[in-house]
């Protein structure tokens, strides 16, 4: 790790101007669970760190009114254990509490969590230049393409990159149509969360649509009756403390036995948090039987393009969606 300067501004505008004056190679750091990790791997090499965790009053969790609002510096564990979220939006609470470990959830903040970088092993293991990686070194190639791709994406891939977007919470937020509040040198703006993430295409090193110096300041989730009938279902290689092989964020608005509206997003299988509109459409107006749920799961994966070893994610993902739908429906009835 190369040396860097370290600043700790106490207001968001100060942080933005600190970033502007630091110039190139500056990075905001919040919990640091991704950035510091990648710095230790010599993959991230910032020259200036601007620690935003001393900014006062940017960690509020608001559940009144017609929306949920989580300020960026709220720890993941704080949102995960909020009573209103647990009761009314289990999909959000579960997406947070099934991520990482309690230690890391105490450190990581919900804003930074949206910017977690991929766990692709070829990306993380290549600071010495052994494995080519277009994300790490644009134009160098992608070792995963014909490599050990069991963990790689089946949606949103390109000839340059198949790396999975690793987060859980972003998947739930995409399902719930969240908006982001963003502050930057040019002022503030809002952004639908789905627009935060870029597909790799031929520029996999560009992962987010934030401009230099912009930071996420809050996450806003519109309230919906579907919140109570929701779940985040996550299948992994062990029971806990692992990234998803396949996951599904599901929320259902029911009209009696029938689905009136379904929210479905997929994790662990795509290069960005992946909404599944085909499956959502298929469910509208249906009575949710196990067969209908599995049909919807299969519809969600109809466009998948697996590689050599990750073909199982298509069937596993479909069944994960199906089980998630049944859990959500059960909750919507209680």
């Amino acid at each position: 790790m190369q040396p860097f300067t370290y600043m700790r501004p106490t207001t968001a505008p100060d942080a933005v101007s600190a970033f502007a004056s630091a110039g190139a190679d500056a990075r905001y750091i919040a919990g640091g669970t991704t950035l510091y990790d990648l710095m230790k791997l010599n993959i991230e090499q910032p020259r200036h760190l601007i620690d935003i965790t001393a900014i006062a009053g940017l960690d509020k969790i608001e559940t009144d009114g017609d929306r949920l609002r989580f300020e960026a510096l709220a720890p993941m564990s704080a949102v995960a254990t909020n009573d209103v979220i647990i009761r009314d939006y289990p999909v959000l609470a579960e997406a947070l509490s099934k991520a990482a470990s309690q230690q890391l959830r105490n450190m990581a903040r919900v804003g930074g969590n949206l910017l977690q970088r991929t766990r692709c092993m070829y990306f993380r293991n290549g600071a010495d230049g052994v494995y080519p990686c277009n994300k790490r070194e644009p134009g160098s190639g992608c070792a995963a393409l014909r490599g050990l791709d069991r963990g790689q994406a089946v949606f949103g891939t390109s000839d340059a990159c198949t790396a999975v977007s690793p987060g859980d919470f972003p998947v739930a937020l995409v399902a719930m149509d969240a908006q982001l509040e963003i502050l930057g040198p040019a002022g503030s703006r809002t952004l639908p969360i789905g627009d935060l993430y870029r597909l790799p295409a031929d520029t996999p090193h560009l992962e987010f649509t934030l401009a230099p110096g912009e930071m996420i300041t809050a996450i806003v989730v519109p309230k919906t009756a579907a919140g109570r009938g929701s779940t985040y279902h996550k299948i992994r290689d062990r029971e806990s403390y692992a990234f998803a092989l396949a996951s599904a964020a599901v929320a259902l608005e029911m009209d009696g036995d029938q689905v009136s509206r379904a929210h479905i997003a997929l994790g662990g299988v795509a290069t960005k948090p992946w909404r599944a509109p085909e499956a959502e459409l298929k469910l509208a107006g249906q009575r949710l039987t196990p067969e209908v749920a599995l049909d919807a799961g299969r519809a969600a994966f109809s466009g998948a393009s697996p590689g050599k070893y990750n073909g199982f994610k298509v069937e596993l993902g479909a069944r994960t969606v199906a089980d998630a739908l049944l859990i959500a429906a059960e909750r919507s009835r209680s």
């Binding site: 993380r124 290689d237 062990r238 029971e239 692992a242």
Partner: peptide, 12 residues
């Protein structure tokens, strides 16, 4: 590493 070389955790 211990994220990708998966060993049993307590919940297992």
């Amino acid at each position: 590493d211990l994220a990708d070389y998966v060993v049993a955790v307590n919940a297992d």
